[in-house]
Amino acid sequence: MSVAQNQAAEAEKAQFFGYLVEFDSVDEVMHAAERVRDAGYTKWDTHTPFPVHGMDKAMGIKYTKLPIVVLGGGLTGCLGALLMQWWMNAVDYPYIISGKPFWSIPANIPVTFELTVLFSALTTVFGMLAFNQLPQWRHGVFASERFLRATDDKFFISIEAKDPKFDAKKTADFLSTLGGGEVEALEE
């Protein structure tokens, strides 16, 4: 294969996002998700019009690492606030206020509390966006016309071609055994 052909093949491959299957009910998509999970796929997702309790377990999704990141954010806000007030009130511009010591912790607590909350909250929001790789302007599943009903009354499972276990034929065969509708190939 020439370099140009290689590039063309690469480009074609990059445009092929993966497969999409449609289901009619929560139970169906839940059982299908369990089977996809057990088959060992990792780059796949379910799409439902509403949150489905127990889906995380059915998909084998591990609990998010976000709380640890938020703890880091909170501690940063807490210690940063104390450091800032210590520097401002006790070092850079010592000034007696109501006869209190230059650096008096009780007076610093409201600001410390607020900055802890603020940093935790901002870390939660931005950490959530980062872990979800958002914002994303385009997603492979949008190629499907049927997928519009994922916000209405249909349930979907998509498996990405990037998945290490993905095989154009085997995966398609596997998906067709899940009891959903026809397997749709997604071309971006």
Binding site: S98, G99, K100, P106, A107, I109, P110
Partner: peptide, 12 residues
């Protein structure tokens, strides 16, 4: 608890 302490501590 801190709210109670804080105001009393500050006003002195």
């Amino acid at each position: 608890g801190f709210s109670q302490y804080f105001l009393i501590w500050y006003a002195n």
